[in-house]
Amino acid sequence: MLTFTLRRLLLAVPTLLVISLVIFLVVDLAPGSPMSEIPLTIPPEVRRKMIAALGADQPVFVRYLLWLRQFFWVEPASLFDGWFGTALADGEQRILSWQSRSPVFSIIGQRLPQTLTVIGTAYIVGILIALPIGIYSAYRQYSWFDQAGTLFAMIGFSVPTFFSGTLFILLFAVWLGWFPTKYDTQLEVRDWASFWQQARQMAMPVMTLGLANAAAISRYMRSSMLENMGMDYVRTARAKGMSERTVVLKHVLRNSLIPVVTVIALGIPSIFGGAIVTENLFGVNGIGAALIGAIQANDIPMVQTLAFIFAVLIVLFNLIADILYGLLDPRIRYE
């Protein structure tokens, strides 16, 4: 397992380098200019100077190499400095967002907490809803519960989050007045009152995303359960005279969870990626909102860095999913 992991990690290095180059070229070649959002009242020569000040007029390969250096040397070094008070990255240019002139990594650092709390909670809530639905739907296939579960999944799949989110806002915020429509990122949970406030402001985005997540995962769970339900070893377990509870929870569920756990692990990078639509809708302003804002503003350093971090996370969680599979399924061994 260790050699397998090491080999995969080594293999990931050239893969990621190629990915970074491809992302850079794609982002760079995409039409648009970092100045496209500023008012027309700013004359062309001022624009040109602003672009030069951003360094955006340099040739693409120069900017790429600079970015590589910044990403792999300057940023880790300045992180190290921050921890140990050293001065490795002194005088070095960190990756700066063109839009805000702030270091990209401090922006990510500011935004990650709310993305992880909101999107992460939504993911966990989604899983917690999905697993029982999937398990019971499969166990009672074609029952009214299964039909209702199917309907739920269909709704979760087909209703886009901008629609369900807006619906929730109208229902729970405008009519009932239960929840705020704008997420307060500055809220600190210090006591029960602020915890309650945090729970209230998380309610709608978590519901919106949780519904969508639960839909997909409940279907995976159901089909995996159904597949295992028909297996001979389940019949064996019944023939052994095991109770129905043992048969379903010990034999069927444990084996059915293997692929579901993998799917869940593979979905984790998307938590870091945030949810563009939902974040925007509720003003969560996490990573997803940062990415879409950066794309709209042609903030290439921001887009590039975020896209690359996603690529790293995806590669990493693919590896983790593989390792998990190996741990959960004794039939799989990596050498």
Partner: peptide, 30 residues
């Protein structure tokens, strides 16, 4: 369920009929 011990079955596919995540001891002693 209480009757089951007196009537048993040996299945066609020995691979599929054994829970892949249980050891021999688990399977036989369950």
């Amino acid at each position: 369920r209480r009757k089951r011990p007196s009537m048993q079955m040996v299945f066609q596919d020995p691979q599929a009929s054994l829970n892949p995540r249980m050891t021999l001891a688990d399977i036989v002693s369950e």
